[in-house]
Design a protein around this nucleic acid. Structure first.
Length: 700
DNA sequence: GCATGAGTACTTTTT
DNA sequence: GTACTCATGC
């Protein structure tokens, strides 16, 4: 097992008891260390998989790690806990949260849910959301939670008026989320630590269970996560953390790079192993990455080197505007594919999700297949959140945020005023919203019609609750859609948008089916949990042959043969909001470093002379980061012929064109698949895929 | 209670 | 360029 490791990797893998810090530079075989270390523990040290806890950054990484360990030691590895911080805590809380007064079928609030709850709280506290935007307050509460400060502690330390406002909201928010039997993302970690502090016997049981703890991407842990690891490893102290301070990019959400820089201080008896040989990139790419990183002051001394060949120079390209930039990327990829590469070897990274739109447009027009990671997630779509809200209410009737979301969806004439009246009643009697609803007859303020509608809604929920007990998940959802008329409401609306929403809901049923087929324990709770903690990146596969587009943040941990980084302009990358503060600028630089080091063979760095931003035209100067790369490492691209028509325009059709078809009538071009093939939406017929050589299409 | 349209504000990264 | 809020009229 150790044969394939270099001496330093070997040292990390065979390190025995006690704390170990592995400083793993980009592409230095970090995952290999972790998987081999786990395998070594099981095979050579006789440690039971039950006694190992491995924490990764994403579910995708967890899944991959499990598979790779299974390849080394076989299926015994299934008993290991390999998951993200959040999933780990949910698993513990499902077991133990009753001690804290939570019900074990608690739900998990995502950022949007908790923002809604903050908004409700602020409204009830009569706080002006103009002066104190709910989003800012929610963000502040999140930050405070990441620092393990609870509502009371925050209230006592609040000094400015704004802080007391936030403290008030925080207190009410926490009361309500508790009454809703829900946790937000930050609670999951903080409450788990609280649990361990409050119940030493519980802590001891988990400390005893997890004799070996491994943490990946340690540079991106926040204080709460740090505390969690520290307390869990407190007894056996067999803690192995792996990370790279140069890749710390989540400071904005509370990650504290000091966790890695000061590991040796926290654990004076720790061993430190540095992995500096890179197996991923060419010498040229690595050299550029090193040069950029030289400009950061806060970092551990480390010099990445590689035995790989020098490879191609880095290609620099400047376009007139973002369209030309995107066109260059698309045509360059086409060229690479013609030369024998595959689409899936290529990735395009950008700083912000908003930049993806132009790329998408151009890629569609050129017929370059692509997939996008991030942006609006499937589970974030309004219609999916609606369906999920129904399921969450059925799982946990106390869930106020979800209940309020669905009480009038589809429209059943229970509007804001009625909800406010029920709310007032709940407040007066100090009961949760769902209980207050049942008191409908006692609420004098409600109109007779409102009372009737609410009762009808309660009957509906009761019927669904009864079905939940005996039906499969899929049938439950189908019954729900049927009884509420949710799908029919969209179908009746008939607009293209409504139909696509209906389509998404149907796709969601497919997701549920899939879940029931692949999971032994396919309960409603289990499903909701998986959905709550899923990240877009988790669904990235390399099965279909398409270019991957994503933000640089999402690219962490991945690698591609060919990488394009677009928008290399001051104000875009580095982002305008991070340009004045040195600490933030250094984080931007690390982000750029992450982007560069994803590339194995070819790297393209692109910018646009002018760019449309926030509705206006901007002329940004070339990114300061580009000046940090020695000129001899780069080569300017031959400027693309801007007059050249993209192939799909030879047939003269582009997205959005209104067209006329002799049989189907007037339609609109939805997508252009190739020179030959395009899809058109017709009022009467829906979407049709047409071959130009056969379909008589005219431009309107 | 609800649909509609005007107006406005907001644009970072996310488990 | 859009996503959300708010006022208006039915």
């Amino acid at each position: 097992m150790l044969d394939k490791l270099n001496p330093v990797q070997c040292e990390a893998v065979t390190h025995g008891e006690g704390p170990l810090l592995v400083l793993a530079g980009a592409g230095s075989g970090k995952t290999r260390i972790l998987t081999h270390k786990i395998a070594y523990l099981i095979k050579e040290q006789g440690i039971s998989p039950f006694e190992i806890l491995a924490i990764t950054f994403t579910n995708k990484a967890a899944k991959e790690m499990k598979e790779r360990v299974a390849n080394l030691v076989g299926s015994v590895s299934r008993a290991m806990w390999v998951s993200t911080f959040h999933s780990t805590c949910v698993r513990i809380l499902r077991q133990e949260a009753e001690r804290l007064g939570y019900n074990r079928n608690f739900v998990i609030y995502d950022a949007a849910d908790s923002l809604r709850l903050v908004t409700y709280c602020m409204r009830d506290l009569n706080i002006d959301t103009k002066r104190y935007p709910a989003k800012k307050v929610a963000g502040a509460i999140s930050n405070v939670k990441n620092e393990m400060i609870d509502a009371e502690a925050f209230a006592t330390r609040a000094t400015t008026y704004a802080e007391t406002v936030i403290a008030d909201v925080y207190k009410l928010y926490q009361e309500r989320i508790y009454k809703s039997n829900a946790f937000d993302f930050d609670d999951l970690i903080m409450v788990t630590v609280n649990l361990f502090e409050l119940f030493p016997s519980v802590l001891e049981a988990y400390q005893e269970k997890f004799k070996y703890i491994l943490v990946d991407e340690y540079q991106d842990t926040n204080l709460a996560q740090y505390e969690l690891v520290k307390i869990l490893a407190g007894k056996h102290r067999n803690l192995c953390v792996v990370g790279d301070d140069c890749q710390a990019i989540y400071g904005f959400r509370g990650a504290d790079i000091r966790n890695i820089l000061e590991f040796e201080r926290d654990y004076p008896d720790s061993r430190v192993v540095k992995l500096e040989q890179n197996y991923r990139s060419t010498k040229t790419i690595l050299s550029a990455a090193n040069s950029v990183m030289q400009n950061n002051r806060a970092r551990k001394p480390k010099a990445l080197w590689t035995e790989n060949e020098a490879g191609d120079l880095i290609t620099r390209y400047q376009g007139e505007n973002e369209h030309e930039e995107a066109t260059f990327v698309a045509s360059e990829i086409e060229g690479l594919v013609k030369a024998g590469r595959h689409y899936k070897e290529c990735a395009v990274f950008y700083r912000t999700n908003a930049q993806s739109r132009v790329l998408e447009e151009i890629f569609l027009r050129y017929g370059v297949p692509y997939k996008i990671v991030g942006g609006l997630k499937f589970y974030d779509r309004a219609e999916i959140k609606d369906v999920l809200a129904y399921l969450r209410v059925l799982s946990n009737p106390q869930d106020t945020v979800s209940l309020k979301r669905i009480i009038n969806v589809p429209k059943r004439s229970i509007g804001d005023t009625s909800v406010a009246k029920v709310d007032a009643h709940a407040l007066k009697k100090n009961i949760v919203f769902s209980e207050a609803l049942k008191d409908v007859d006692e609420i004098g303020a409600l109109s007779a019609g409102a009372k009737k509608n609410i009762k009808k809604f309660l009957v509906l929920i009761d019927e669904l609750l009864a079905l939940k007990e005996k039906e499969t998940l899929e049938n439950l959802v189908r019954a729900m859609l049927d009884m509420t008329g949710y799908l029919t409401a969209y179908e009746d609306e008939g607009t293209m948008e409504a139909l696509s929403r209906a389509e998404n809901v149907k796709e969601f049923i497919g997701v549920i089916k899939e879940f029931e087929n692949t999971h032994v324990e396919s309960s409603l709770d289990a499903f909701l949990e998986e959905v709550a903690l899923i990240a877009d990146i988790d669904n990235l596969d390399d099965e279909n042959n398409a270019v991957t587009m994503m933000t640089v943040h999402n690219a962490k941990g991945l690698e591609f043969n060919v990488v394009f980084i677009v928008g290399m302009e001051d104000g875009v990358f580095p982002h305008i909001r991070s340009m004045t503060d040195t600490v933030e600028l250094e984080e931007e630089r690390r982000l750029f470093y992450v982007g560069i080091t994803r590339a194995m063979q070819k790297l393209y760095l692109c910018n646009a002379w002018s760019r449309n931003l926030w509705g206006g035209l901007n002329y940004n100067s070339v990114s300061r980061f580009l000046h940090e790369i020695p000129p001899e490492l780069t080569d300017d691209a031959v400027k693309v012929d801007t007059q050249a028509k993209p192939p799909s325009q030879i047939g003269a059709f582009i997205i959005g064109d209104n067209v006329f078809h002799q049989k189907f009538g007037v339609g609109r071009v939805v997508s252009v698949k190739s020179e030959e093939q395009l899809t058109v939406f017709f009022e009467a017929e829906g979407e049709k895929t047409l071959l130009l050589s056969y379909a008589p299409l005219e431009k309107r």
